[in-house]
Each structure stands twice: as C-alpha cells, then as structure tokens.
C-alpha cells in the first residue's frame, strides 16, 4: 500500500511540474519583464525537479537547487507583467453564479478530509484527488476552456512567486539541520541552562521561543523548522509530548510573534501603507493584547493536550 501511495503521489508531482512549466513558459514570453529569462528558468527548473524527482539523481537536484539560489541572489526572479482578471467577466459571473462560486473550494476541503479519513489512501493522496475534482467542478460550473484554465493556472503560480516554494525550502533546511546534528546540539546547549524533563518548563520554553524567533525573523514557518528541531523535539516531544499537539500549537504560538513584529511587513506594515494610517505601529498596537493573551492560553493548552 505504501508503495502504491508513493507511486500515486508521483502522478500529482508531475501535475505540479506541469503547472510550474506553464508559469515558466509564460514568464519567458513576458517581454516586458527585464528578468524574464531568470524567472522562466526558475519555474522550469522547479518543473524538472517536481516531475523528474523520481528519476534524477539527488546530486543533480542538489545542483539545480544551488542554481535557484544563485538566480534569486542575482535578483533574476521577478513576477513581471502578470495579466489581471477581467473585472467585467468577474462581475457578470458573480451575478450568475452567486454563492455557487464557493462550491469548488467546499468540494476540495470536504473531499480531502473524507478521503483521508475513510479510505486507506491517506491525506496527501486525498488532497491530490480532490484538487483535481475541484478543478473539474470549477471548470464545468464556469464553462471554462482549456486555454483560460491554462492562463488561470500560470497567473496564480506566477503571482505566488518565490514565496510559494519557501515552505518546501524551509522543510529541506530542517532536514539538513537534522542530518548535521544541529537539533541535538541546540538541545545540549540549552539543557545546560534549562533542565530537560520538566513538562511545563519545556512547553513554556518552546512556545516562547517560537514567538520570539518569529518576531526576530518575521516568518513563523522559518522559525518552526529551526525551533522545533532545537527545542520542541528535545524539550517537549522527547519528554512524552504528543508530536501533533506540539506541531499544531507550536506553529500558532509563532503566529503570536507575527502579530507583534514590524518584521512581518505583509501583515503589519502593508495595511498601514494601504490605509495611510498615521501611527506606523497602529496595527501591532491593536493586536498586542490579543497576541499576548493567546500565547498564554496556548502554553496551557499545549501542556494539557500534549501530556
């Protein structure tokens, strides 16, 4: 069954490679983008990695990843000139479809849970199958042609840009940390100051570290990869804490940090600029009381649910 699932998943990785290829082709064709070659290469390389992951030697993929890093470092990846949607079409479709427009999303969310819970296929295959069915539903409801669906796909991928691949790169970083023994080392360093074995102290340490490191880095996903390996595993999971509770509540503890930091510009500075607010910290000030309350609640929730 595991073998079957892995082979089945490979089909979905090829599909992801395909939509990345669409983004690559359209980036190359975007004559107004000064970095069109680099941006096109970025998506095509990713397409190759996703579709060919099973066949290509790992070392080759390693080289391709370094290449992505160089392209990004040289500022050769830019969203470019992405064609927006036609407001008139959107307005008239919205009138015609009404609330039905949300149906494909509902299909996706519910079907993926159903497949995960009630079939032996598991959550990941569930997401793959339901994404395809949701897309078919959406295309059928809106009577979309293959051509417009192609453009909808490349538009979404290109507007997501490099941010879309960041979570996977962070997961890769976490795996490299583990292989290099970073987690054990931070655990050893910290256990010189804080004793391991005290459940509550471990939970407090992990949740606070998630929030503080997210404040410094401005990104909870990045903090999660580092702090879970270094603190979450040795101080909470290794002491008997349930991994799923540690992950779920650890990540949202990081979000408390996001609510408190000007480093998370997209969430806290963008609205200030958009609405021409006088107080630069105006959004963070409104968020602070809730963020701190939630952090305290999460510490207790993790302590009671994990042990």
């Amino acid at each position: 069954m595991t073998n079957f699932i892995n082979n089945f998943l490979e089909v979905f990785y090829v599909l992801i490679g395909l939509i990345m290829l669409f983004a690559g082709i359209e980036s190359f064709r975007d004559k107004e983008n000064p970095a069109r070659i680099g941006t096109g290469l970025f998506w095509v390389i990713l397409a190759v990695i996703f579709a060919g992951g099973r066949i290509l030697p790992y070392a080759v993929i390693g080289v391709l990843i370094l290449l992505l890093g160089v392209l990004s470092l040289l500022k050769q990846i830019k969203p470019g000139n992405i064609k927006g949607i036609d407001e008139k079409v959107a307005e008239s479709s919205a009138k015609r479809l009404g609330g039905w427009i949300f149906l494909p999303s509902v299909v996706l969310a519910i079907l993926s849970i159903v497949i995960a819970q009630f079939t032996p296929l598991g959550g990941q295959i569930g997401i793959g199958i339901s994404s395809v069915i949701a897309l078919i539903t959406a295309a059928w409801m809106t009577k979309s042609s293959a051509k417009t669906t192609y453009h909808d796909s490349e538009r979404m991928v290109r507007s997501m840009g490099t941010a879309g691949i960041l979570p996977q790169l962070l997961a890769m970083l976490g795996a490299v940390f583990t292989a290099s023994g970073v987690g054990e080392l931070t655990a050893k360093a910290i256990s010189g100051v804080f004793p391991t074995g005290n459940h509550l102290l471990g939970v407090v340490l992990y949740c606070l570290a998630m929030a503080i490191f997210t404040m410094i880095m401005g990104n909870a996903f990045a903090a999660f990869a580092v702090i879970t390996a270094g603190i979450g595993i040795p101080f909470v999971v290794a002491q008997g804490g349930a991994p799923v509770v540690v992950a779920a509540i650890g990540m949202t503890s990081g979000y408390c940090g996001t609510l408190l930091t000007p480093m998370a510009a997209n969430f806290n500075s963008l609205p200030v600029a958009l609405m021409e607010m006088k107080d630069n910290m105006g959004v963070i000030k409104q968020q602070a009381p809730i963020a701190i309350t939630l952090l305290v609640i999460q510490i207790f929730l993790m302590y009671f649910l994990a042990f």
């Binding site: 998943l9 979905f12 990785y13 992801i16 939509i19 990345m20 990695i49 992951g53 030697p57 790992y58 070392a59 080759v60 993929i61 390693g62 080289v63 391709l64 990843i65 949607i85 036609d86 079409v89 959107a90 307005e91 008239s92 479709s93 919205a94 009138k95 479809l97 427009i101 949300f102 494909p104 999303s105 996706l108 990941q124 997401i127 793959g128 994404s131 949701a134 897309l135 539903t137 959406a138 409801m141 979309s144 417009t148 669906t149 909808d152 796909s153 979404m156 991928v157 997501m160 879309g164 691949i165 979570p167 996977q168 790169l169 997961a171 890769m172 970083l173 795996a175 490299v176 292989a179």
Partner: peptide
Amino acid sequence: TLLGKSFIENRVVSLFFLTLPMIGVIERHG
C-alpha cells in the same frame, strides 16, 4: 545529495500548488 534528497522528500509541502488552478478559475469568475 543531501540537498537534493531533503528537497525531494519534502515535495509534499508544495502539494498546495495543485489547488491553485481551481482558485484561479473561480477568481476569474467573481
């Protein structure tokens, strides 16, 4: 090899890319 292997083994993180075409279609339709 370690970079390539770690990246490939975490491809599942990017599974959400599969949901983008559907969101794109319904976005264009209001």
